[in-house]
Write a protein that binds this DNA or RNA. Sequence first.
DNA 1: TACATATGATCAT
DNA 2: TGATCCTATGTAA
Length: 265
Amino acid sequence: MPEGHTVHRLARDLARDLGVNAVTASSPQQRFAAGADLLDGQVATRCRAYGKHLFVDFEAGDTLHIHLGLIGKFRRTAPDAPRDTVRLRLAVDHIAWDLTGPMTCTVGGPDTFTDVTTTLGPDPLRRDGRLPDFSERVATRRVPIGAALLDQRVVAGIGNVYRAELLFLVGIHPSVPSLMLADAEVNDLWNVATDQLRRGVRLNRIVTVDPADVGASSVGRIGADDRLHVYKRAGEPCRRCGAPIERFVLAGRKTWFCPTCQPPP
DNA sequence: TACATATGATCAT
DNA sequence: TGATCCTATGTAA
């Protein structure tokens, strides 16, 4: 489930679990054997996230760089858990963190963080993420806003679920040209993104529906199937207006919108 | 057993 | 735009 919220949450949980102890690093799958050897026995000194990129610094100056991609997972397991597909296992005491299916898993020097993040747009989950930076990048893209939001050079950490959900929440159709958005709309988009991604970190999952959006019968409780407004809900009624949710492909990925709440340009 | 699909990104054409 | 990489899961056969 890797959008920015997942990676920021990982940085936090990893930092807590790894603590100040030396880690045992291994690559059961062997594809990261050399890197694991470098890290084995070192103390992790810092865990950071920027967009969908995760960085773990080690005492000797090595930086582990991980990007989960579409199917990657990094999860807390036990040292006796199955490991045939585990690219990297970081173990401390009785806790093991298992990385499977990552798009990127490398070890580099102290410049790794800067080198990787210099190409990225502002990250709403970071303290250094700036709205004016976002505004400027949105205003200079000659693509639909639904494409711009997936471009990590415009804003870092948003993926296919948040692109659809955020645009619903701000009432903007994905096909509206990025540079046509009013200042107020761009501000709104940034603020909603910040709020929603933070909520995602807190809950460790994407939930964009509010209790006020669900029926009185459910007493404000949000169930497993009503956490999202539009993502993967083609044909189902909009929770706010009842119109059937529609779907189309934008920037090579399916996206969803409400034709009433998000009028086409 | 096979196939489709997935919250991502890159590279080739 | 399409192929490709990586893994896991759900559905179909």
